[in-house]
Amino acid sequence: MRLIEKPWIWAWVGTISIWLVIASLSGVSAGTEVLTAAASFGTFFVLVAIGQMLVITLGPGNVDLSIPACMTLASTVAMKVMNGSEAMLIPGFLIVVAIGLAIGTLNFALIILLRIPPIIATLSSSFLYLSTAIWYNRGLRVKPPEALADFATGKIGVVPLLAIAVLVLTVIMHFVLHRTYFGRSILAIGQNPKAAHLAGVPVERTRFMTYVLCAVLAAICGYFLAGFSGGAALNMGEEYLLMSIAVVVIGGTSVAGGFANLPGLWGAALFMFLLVTMLNTLGLSAGYRLIFTGAIIVAVIAISGKKR
């Protein structure tokens, strides 16, 4: 396959062109700083988008709308339990993973037991998670342990530590998706669930593991995001609903399922951050920024879409 035909190429072309615009407007050194910021924020987008991508790849109708609520609940509980104590870092992390496991299991239980579309299942359950988070901490912000904040905001040179960690995770997931039985099962189910079933792929077990993995990644993202931004807040997950889906689609993963790629996630995550930064640099008011953000997302999707 030629480079131009790779599904992820457009996200990277967009990222590079926007960066060039920013660099030409405000100079190369400012451009480097923007790139570091993009890597910091993009890391969180990629972390949730990996899970969302695997879920979307399962085929039409599969999407997890409970990601923001899952991030909020996991980080709220973890921050309160840790209460700023560094000795609790590992237990806090384990709690986050456990909450992710529980949420993923509950989501899938609703999907399979009530036989309702995942959109409605994860939407209804997200109300429950959000309520639990509100009840648990009444929206108070608890400071993260210092070590967690240091790690989440730490850098080697200009490269954020967390970005390196998630980059390693991306490479691992790339291997998992294309080389392991689990990953290939996801792709097979997305391409044709019936054929996958007849070929002996454990369809429901794979779907179950995918939803759980998505929830766990969202919970972990919430943990580090709370460390990054000085505590868990009730609305911390808000923008991640759109972002998780937009990053997956702009990254060249098929919304119809069956075809996924990881390089596109990074391209799309950086693209989304740089896009907002560019609109800020241009000095546009909030209204125009929103309009351009939306219009560019729709335009990118429309261009990458296939003609009927």
Binding site: V63, I119, L241, L242, I245, A246, V249, V255, A256, S285, A286, G287, Y288, R289, L290, I291, F292, T293, G294, A295, I297, V298, I301, A302, G305, K306, K307, R308
Partner: peptide, 29 residues
């Protein structure tokens, strides 16, 4: 647009929600 380009309505409408809010903010800040 959704029909001709065979686009997923979820993503297109999510993107459009930004546009609607943006226009609303311009009309009534």
């Amino acid at each position: 647009l959704i029909h001709l380009r065979n686009l997923p309505s979820i993503v297109v409408t999510l993107g459009m929600s930004f546009v609607w809010v943006g226009v609303a903010v311009l009309i009534l800040p």
